[in-house]
Design a protein around this nucleic acid. Structure first.
Ligand code: NAD
Ligand code: NAD
Lengths: 215, 215
DNA sequence: AATTTAATGTTATAAATATAACAAATAATT
DNA sequence: AATTATTTGTTATATTTATAACATTAAATT
């Protein structure tokens, strides 16, 4: 029987926990309490313990969680043994910033290629990652075993590009464009919409201002 | 009595609806059905109707929603009359990409300034937006009435910068760094964590692969 | 004008997520 | 060795979010 998927929010937090656990490790800390981890992430200790319960890890009680062990368990959940290959589609302002950022950051999520329709970019290297022509996407996704796409093409090209990528076997997409995409069930899509995030902030800031004015 | 805040997810979707409604308007469409709007965003029609119920707008039934009217209502909810001023803190790779992108996009959320600790950047202009020295943040946040911060400083400077910004009266923060921040209740914080988003995708792609292998 | 149809608006229910309550465990203290 | 203190692990409850069910409305049709 297949083990059930973890709640989405738990997966997100596990990723966040791992980062702070790695920091702890770097500082020579061997154990950490649920309330300390909670404090770092501004959530409750119960939340932390419940997440850790989900992944089945148990501490040597009373001393807190063993930092090293917990990192290993989280790794076994999120990472794959041989890593997942990632490519950036659209090497413009954002695509470059993202490539620069990710390159050499996470060992198990490697940016192995970038793609652009602009033939003057194709063939060049950026941050040690080769930029390929969009013409060759199909063969390269296969041969380079690219399973995750960072979509940073202009909005107008978003839908068309997505269709191509899915057709070529891409399994996960992080959508930086503000165009809503529709993908089949077997493809995991994560929307990453700055405008919406910013407008949401604006709404709550406005609501807050309204409160103050009333005082 | 104060009118209750909208659910967070509804606010997000309203922002998304508005964008597609503006597209519809540009295409000369005057009315839209809930199921059409739902189709664009890959959600259910009930979800759309419920969101629109929350904001109290009612259509001329049977013809669908009046695109123009709905845009106006959403605007009245998200936007402020005189707009909210936004500033970018940390004019590096990401800060520049974001400034470039936002400049001239949304009328009611104006990027009015960028800030950097690097004195060679301060004084210059980028995308028609002036870059100021971090030394002057306090006076400028006040005088330019900046209420929202886009935080694109290096992780190591995130906490310190946040403290400064809150002290200076910032009310909303979009955190691009991967450092978890702790802010007081009156400040609205939105985390915008690419690593976590990507690792989440990796988790589900991995789970999906596992399924396939078992077949 | 009555009927049908296809849409909305709203209440009821389900699912996902977060919080609270508390028992179990174990290190430290008496 | 018994007691206390403190932290975990887990079940129970609350909140938030999404979906379903259905009554209501108004244009189109008969
Ligand atoms: N820059 C930002 O901070 C930011 C913020 C939010 C959203 N976005 C979104 O990210 C996307 C990219 O933004 P940007 O500022 O980097 O734009 P950009 O114009 O700088 O870059 C787009 C790149 O995509 C390439 N391209 C165009 N059509 C293509 C195609 N069909 N296939 C492959 N490549 C193609 C272009 O040659 C260019 O290099 C846009 O959809 C934008 O809405 C950007
Ligand atoms: N580039 C990306 O795509 C990306 C993706 C995810 C997250 N991030 C995060 O965004 C942040 C910026 O990334 P980047 O790639 O643009 O880095 P960057 O080094 O290119 O830019 C950082 C800028 O901040 C300035 N700065 C440094 N200390 C400062 C301070 N105390 N006050 C004001 N400005 C200061 C620097 O002078 C520089 O211009 C980082 O925290 C990074 O983790 C970036």
């Amino acid at each position: 029987m297949r083990n059930k998927l973890l709640p989405e929010k738990t997966v997100e937090r596990l990723s966040e926990y791992r980062r702070s656990l790695l920091n702890c490790l770097a500082q020579g800390r061997t154990h950490i309490y649920s309330h300390d981890l909670a404090g770092i992430h501004n959530i409750t200790a119960v939340q932390v313990r419940r997440d850790i319960m989900f992944i089945g890890y148990t501490s040597s009680q009373r001393k807190g969680y063993d930092v090293n062990e917990l990192i290993t368990v989280i790794r076994s959940i999120i990472d794959t043994d041989d890593g997942l290959n990632v490519a950036v589609f659209g090497l413009g302002n954002l695509g470059k910033a993202v490539t620069h950022y990710f390159k050499g950051k996470r060992s198990r999520l490697n940016i192995v290629a970038t793609f652009d329709i602009d033939e003057s970019k194709a063939g060049q290297e950026y941050e040690g990652v080769k930029c390929y022509s969009m013409n060759d996407y199909k063969e390269l996704i296969k041969s380079l075993k690219i399973s995750i796409a960072l979509l940073t093409v202009p909005g107008a090209a978003a839908v068309e590009t997505t269709t191509k990528l899915i057709d070529a076997g891409i399994e996960g997409i992080l959508n930086f464009t503000t165009v809503p995409l529709i993908v089949p069930d077997h493809v995991f899509l994560e929307e990453y919409d700055m405008i919406t995030s910013l407008e949401k902030i604006a709404y709550y800031v406005k609501a807050n201002k309204g409160l103050k004015d009333r005082k």
